[in-house]
Write a protein that binds this DNA or RNA. Structure first.
Length: 426
RNA sequence: GGAGAAUUGGCAGAGUGGUCGAUUGCGGUAGUCUUGAAAACUAUUGUACCGAGAGGUACCGGGGGUUCGAAUCCCUCAUUCUCCGCCA
């Protein structure tokens, strides 16, 4: 949620940032400012009425204790009028507040000046590209066929037991998955991130805190009996650890990591993008989350980008880094960098990581603040990134490393898998 | 799941209808004293919002209610602890 003060004080900058997403929010912003002015007037009026009521109540108390019952009764009559006035002004004030809030909730985050303007992925900027992939002749089989040949992933079994998009990994496939998780977690720990095992379901407040609710309601699995949501990413529980937190000083840099399954309904997805591991309802991911001062946020972002690059290089995958245009940037993010690995067999770039700065968009909802040098409360900045999402990494590894003997495991993983080659015998 | 008890400021812990944003202790901060430190003493020490300011309003687990007035009474939800039941 954009800070109301920011809209009051930097209206042009806000509108400009939103225009990167091809959104003209002029009307909404004007409406918010009108309502805000009205709200402040009503708030002041309400508080004045309450002050008067408080003071009369106090006098009544004094009269009673002095034994002057008749006078007290007389005073009581006066409060009646005030009380109804308080009630009606309060109703108006609360109505305005809710109206402002729901308008604010509809506005996505303000993009930074680096974000290119654009409607969809075609306007994303390719920042850099590294590594090489085998030729299409060498890496000719797509991962869904390899998964079958080597008994690594069973999609049909998943359909039987649960439904489409919930595959079983088995044998060396399951083992490879576990190896990737361990590798990613160890790398995150080595980089100073504290490892967490988090709940996989969250309450409504947590969903609101990180911006999944109310915007992406339909994308999460919901359990009505207990009013809980299955997490779409570890970002939600990890960031919400710091909901309603006021850090005592500016001397902090909070780095968290966690591995969780992620549950996404992916309503509206279809076609060949969903083939194999490309799009699932349940998948594994290692997430890194940071909470920083506004001054440190950009540095942290660059550090996270380097971290992800290091992982992809260790895995020996060809990858590129994209700076997302406004239209492709998520609702809550101020700027997002996507990482894609190249799959020769599919002749496609597959998104495997998304690293974002949220500035104060999440912390405003979370009420996550710190005390600055002047003892003033300020909102923290939050950031997060995938490091990494497993399925497409798995797909690219299987496809790019296929050879006559089987599928070669990258060196950085063999200490976790216990084998160097996936073979038909297992 | 059943029964009982509890939830108050950074922590501990008073407060059962009015002068309580809240006694007190510990902790924190500043000062006095001291060569320095400790001790002692003094002062200060929650958050948010409205207001140009003076000042005001709200918050005692969350929400609702009774009352002129609620930390205090009522309803409801959540959480914690104890006992019982069930169970990986």
């Amino acid at each position: 949620m954009i800070e109301i003060q920011r809209i009051r004080e930097q209206q042009d900058e806000v509108l400009n940032g939103l225009s990167k997403r091809n959104i003209d929010a002029t009307k909404e912003v004007e409406q918010i400012l009108i309502l805000d002015k009205e709200w402040r007037g009503q708030k002041t009026a309400l508080q004045n009425l309450e002050a008067e009521l408080n003071s009369i109540s106090k006098q009544i108390g004094q009269l009673f204790s002095a034994g002057k019952k008749a006078e007290a009764q007389e005073m009581k009559a006066k409060t009646l009028e005030l009380k109804t006035a308080v009630q009606s002004v309060k109703k108006i004030e609360e109505g305005l507040e809710n109206e402002i809030k729901s308008l604010l909730y509809t506005l996505p985050n303000v993009c930074t000046s680096d974000v290119p303007k654009g409607i969809d992925e075609s306007a994303n900027e390719i920042i850099e590209e590294h590594g090489t992939s085998p030729s299409k002749e060498k890496a000719k089989t797509p991962h869904w066929d390899l998964a079958k040949t080597y008994n690594l992933i069973d999609f049909e079994m998943g359909v039987k037991v649960t439904g489409a998009g919930f595959p079983f990994y088995r044998g060396q496939g399951a083992r490879l998955q576990r190896a990737l998780v361990s590798f990613f977690l160890d790398e995150a720990s080595n980089a100073g991130y504290e490892e967490y095992v988090s709940p996989l379901m969250v309450n409504e407040n947590s969903g609101k805190g990180t911006g999944q609710l109310p915007d992406k309601e339909g994308q999460m699995y919901y359990i009505p009996a207990d009013d809980l949501y299955m997490i779409p990413t570890a970002e939600v529980p990890l960031t919400n650890i710091y909901r309603d937190v006021l850090l005592p000083d500016a001397n902090f840099s909070i780095k968290l990591t966690g591995h969780t399954p992620c549950f996404r309904r992916e309503a509206g997805s279809y076609g060949k993008d969903v083939r194999g591991l490309n799009r699932l309802h349940q998948f594994e991911k290692v997430e890194i989350v940071r909470i920083e001062t506004p001054e440190n946020a950009e540095n942290a972002l660059q550090e996270m980008i380097r971290h992800v690059k290091k992982l992809l290089e260790a895995l020996g995958l060809q990858y590129r880094v994209l700076r997302l245009c406004g239209g492709d940037t998520g609702f809550a993010a101020a700027i997002t960098y996507d990482f894609e690995v190249y799959s020769a067999a599919q002749d496609k770039w597959l998104e495997v990581s998304s690293v974002s700065r949220f500035d104060t968009f999440q912390s405003n909802r979370l009420r996550l603040r710190f005390k600055d040098e002047n003892k003033k409360s300020r909102l923290c900045h939050t950031l997060n990134g995938s490091a990494l999402a497993l399925p497409r990494i798995m797909a690219a590894l299987l496809e790019n490393n296929q050879c006559a003997e089987g599928i070669k495991i990258p060196e950085c993983l063999t200490r976790y898998t216990g084998f160097e080659m996936i073979t038909k015998k297992g």
